[in-house]
Design a protein around this nucleic acid. Sequence first.
DNA 1: TATCTCATTGACCTATTTGGTCAATATGTC
DNA 2: GACATATTGACCAAATAGGTCAATGAGATA
Lengths: 207, 207
Amino acid sequence: MLLKLVDLEEKRRDAILNAALKEFATKGFDEASTNVIAKESGISKGLMFHYVNSKKDLFLFLYDYCTDIINNEYLELMNFNERDIFERLRQSYLLQLELLRKHPWIFEFNKVSTITKSEEINKELEERLKGKQSLCYETMFDLIDESRFREGLDFERCKQLIFWANVGFTNQILEDIRTLENNEFDYDKIIARIDGYFNELRKLFYK
Amino acid sequence: MLLKLVDLEEKRRDAILNAALKEFATKGFDEASTNVIAKESGISKGLMFHYVNSKKDLFLFLYDYCTDIINNEYLELMNFNERDIFERLRQSYLLQLELLRKHPWIFEFNKVSTITKSEEINKELEERLKGKQSLCYETMFDLIDESRFREGLDFERCKQLIFWANVGFTNQILEDIRTLENNEFDYDKIIARIDGYFNELRKLFYK
DNA sequence: TATCTCATTGACCTATTTGGTCAATATGTC
DNA sequence: GACATATTGACCAAATAGGTCAATGAGATA
């Protein structure tokens, strides 16, 4: 369970975690390099392996760590009773932003971490996938209030368009967050931008 | 100039080209593996190197090959006098589709191929970048007819939203094209889908 | 059938990188 | 000074990198 890692002082632990998150998220398990992770963490390779045992253990630890965080600090807190799609999405943004501040690669890792050359890891992941609740297009766009939309629109296409607008917007924010090295990004400014876009979307789609 | 490759029978040449395109596009020059390219091309490594000389030569050949194609069969044919943004985008789709049929990774390669660890290649690319016309957000959304848009909309935000819708839609099409192995995708069906979306966009944004 | 030609293979080369270890050192505490 | 813990980087075997080349296959010519 990587106790040595868990008991580590927060700053260094997060440095390792985020470096690993980034490396795995961008290259996948097989192509990811522990050398890169160690270097990015700012510690020697020896020390890193002292904390994480092996590449495989680190990866699986990260997997559990991320699903836990996403479950507890995001999915659990989402209120899907909100039927206004833009309110629901806004809520989602606020929660995600909070996570991204600490772990800029957490969602990317969550997407990529599925298929591996290592049979051992594939098996472990398959095991953990059972009963895992995941956030997808379907849940996000399920049971939304259609009556607010303008007449004459194709509802399915509209949902798709709103979804794409969101993907684009999310990527823009992510890029912003990742480029600034200093941890303090302007939370309020981002939210203002988010509200600006939702305002525009309302004008477009709602009566 | 890789004469041996150019003089090759089309089927095999395209197999090599597309395998290389895909590998470079997904991993970048440094991480791309010639072993993978050879295997994906369906020929032995020895034969592949007989055709392409070296990894570097192959990459630079591909770079020129792609810019030529994109220039001659896309940018040159675009009519930027068309002021209706949706007509302009539709035009762009039709031209791109034609290219994608032959080379499913050409645009991805074009995006990724910029930064490398090899100083030699960086220099060559920098050289070729001078005076290269490229398709970007600015040119695509420049000088479009604003008067057709509904009143009260924020024009800049609208352009951004239309752009994101396009990125999303393009990716969906790309995914479709890449998953079907048989070369014959249903051109008319895709165009019908494209027109459906542009129709929806018109309803949303135009008076 | 024997010979010449050229396409094609895969074993092989060296150099680098891989995940991972460990004896040696730095650092701090009593 | 002695002890304990944190930390390093040289080192390992195994794998993989880009690239070569002697040996083979197949087809045409005679």
